[in-house]
Design a protein around this nucleic acid. Structure first.
Length: 481
RNA sequence: GCCGUUUUCGUCUAGUGGCCCAGGACACUUGCUUCUCAUGCAAGAAACACCGGUUCGACUCCGGUAAGCGGCGCCA
């Protein structure tokens, strides 16, 4: 099957999985799934200095978390022999050569070119000494590129059309530090060829690498690939997304309490839009799609050309939507780690979590927002001033709280009837405060939660044990002089 | 500086010569419900970078300008 779709994501293990890389992974994955192709993970760890196996694990974990499973796995450090073979071939054929210029000389050359308003690139005289340098083994290995060429290198990009590049502006590009240490452009070309990649789908920042890779392919006698350069993801200041803009790795979003479904949905809409005729089952809001729905309609032709700004507000909206939709057992599993982390509370019972789920979920953007619901798990702390309803006096607060306590004390919690309780509390307001319900609801709510914003106090009463409710009311009464 | 690339509401986008005095989503504003918050519902403000050309007619086609972004490593 020569028409088999095969794509890859090729991160280097020099840091955690970046949002931009994750989005590239997602588009590759979606394209592979849509076309029944293969999605390959390749770790580019040729730079020993900067690579760390720890990051390889983190990247895999993040991909797992996002549910972007890969069909094949490669690691460049395990393929040194393969690169060496091709490198030797190029050297033997005189297409590559050893360049032994020093880094200082290279910098000097660049400086002079810039001064002359030329494109900076290395034009190496050593390539004319190929025979002498063939077995030299010092300096680095470069591909010989004709600096006087008048050729224009063309390549087709699925989302951008034809892109042209002048060959003479490329220079003698670097291939490897030595036979055992290939460099990016070379290793990528060899791997893409050997693993039969059909489409190279990567970030726009790789456009300028493409003509270089094409030259390497030609020297090696390989066929080229179909290229697709995705628009970049930008921060709010319209520069490439980076640490300055806040969280930039998938890991961090996971730790903040974003759900993988929300991340996937959000990233998919960054630079892509669903076709008009997509069939939606059920009543879901605009822009909400599962990963499978996306995979069913994904098209590279629908990818945007211009870069997209990462808008955390929209992500938050999506995330809260997905949190609301979580079935009880999934909600529990998702929120429990955050209850431990944010509130230091362990061993919350499942039935209890189920009861408070909708009260919390409706008010959560991120799972870490459970920290706003501490009063469901421990005694609240607050200043007495918070108990005061509008123009209340101390007298009236005390009276309101006492009345509420007395009304609740005879209630049998075993047959808790919300409507009955609500009527009771409403009557309190009617009989004592001219029907001003805030006069009794506000102090009650503060006594229960210690917060100025919370769910309906009646709903909270319904989930807390009676002793707790009475105790919190008593504590509040004690606070009023 | 060189090369490449991009340009519709604040943001993500729909739009392929007349259906567009430009549609949707998020955010924002204002109402309704309401003890507070959130949800929900309703309404509202908000954009075709600029200049020329082609055409009966341009957001859509052509040319130019400007601005943004990216790359320019013995990193990937």
């Amino acid at each position: 099957m020569s028409n088999q779709i095969r794509v890859r994501i090729a991160p280097s293990p020099t840091g955690p999985l970046h949002i931009g890389t994750a989005r590239t992974a997602l588009f590759n994955w979606l394209f592979a799934r849509k076309n029944k192709g293969d999605f390959i993970l390749r770790i580019e760890d040729t730079d020993l200095e900067r690579s760390d196996p720890k990051f390889e694990e983190e990247i895999k974990d993040s991909l797992d978390w996002l549910n972007l499973e890969w069909d094949e796995f490669y690691k460049q450090s395990e393929r040194i022999g393969v690169y060496k073979k091709y490198l030797q071939k190029l050297l033997d054929e005189g297409k590559a050569f050893w360049c032994y210029h020093t880094i200082e000389e290279l910098e000097q050359e660049k400086k002079e070119q810039t001064k002359r308003k030329e494109a900076p690139r290395h034009i190496c005289q050593h390539k004319y000494m190929k025979h002498e340098t063939k077995n030299m083994k010092q300096g680095i290995i470069r591909l010989a590129v004709d600096e006087n060429s008048t050729r224009i290198i063309h390549f087709n990009d699925i989302i951008r059309g034809t892109i042209e590049w002048q060959e003479r502006l490329i220079g003698d590009l670097s291939l490897a530090k030595n036979l055992e240490t290939p460099l990016y452009n070379f290793a990528a070309v060899v791997d893409d060829y050997e693993t039969k990649i059909s489409h190279v789908i990567r970030g726009e920042d790789h456009i300028s690498n493409t003509p270089k890779q094409i030259l390497i392919q030609e020297a090696l006698g390989f066929n080229s690939f179909q290229y697709v350069h995705l628009p970049l993801i930008l921060g709010s200041d319209r520069t490439k997304l980076s640490k300055r803009h806040g969280a930039e790795s998938i890991q961090e979003y996971m730790d903040m309490g974003y759900l993988p479904e929300a991340m996937i949905n959000f990233m998919a809409l960054l630079g892509w839009h669903q076709p008009e005729d997509i069939k939606r089952k059920g009543e879901k809001p605009e822009d909400i799609f599962t990963i499978d729905e996306l995979a069913a309609v994904f098209n590279l032709e629908d990818v945007q050309k211009s870069p997209a700004v990462f808008d955390i507000k929209k992500l938050n909206w999506m995330n809260s939507y997905y949190i609301h939709q979580l079935p009880p057992e999934q909600f529990r599993a998702a929120v429990e780690p955050f209850i431990i982390k944010e509130l230091g509370v362990n061993g919350v019972r499942d039935e209890y979590l189920d009861k408070i789920q909708h009260l919390m979920a409706e008010r959560m953007e991120k799972l870490s927002d459970v920290k706003n619901f501490d009063y469901f798990f421990k005694e609240p702390e607050y200043n007495r001033g918070l108990l005061i309803w509008k123009t209340f006096t101390n007298e009236e607060i005390k009276r309101s709280l006492t009345l509420t306590k007395e009304a609740l004390e005879p209630v049998d919690w075993g047959i808790f009837d919300k409507d009955y309780i609500r009527k009771k509390i409403d009557n309190l307001a009617k009989e004592n405060f001219d029907g001003d319900r805030g006069a009794v609801y506000w102090p009650l709510r503060v006594a229960l939660t210690g917060k100025e914003a919370s769910p309906d106090p009646i709903d909270i009463l319904a989930v807390l044990p009676k002793e707790t409710v009475i105790k919190r009311l008593e504590n509040a009464i004690k606070l009023t002089p």
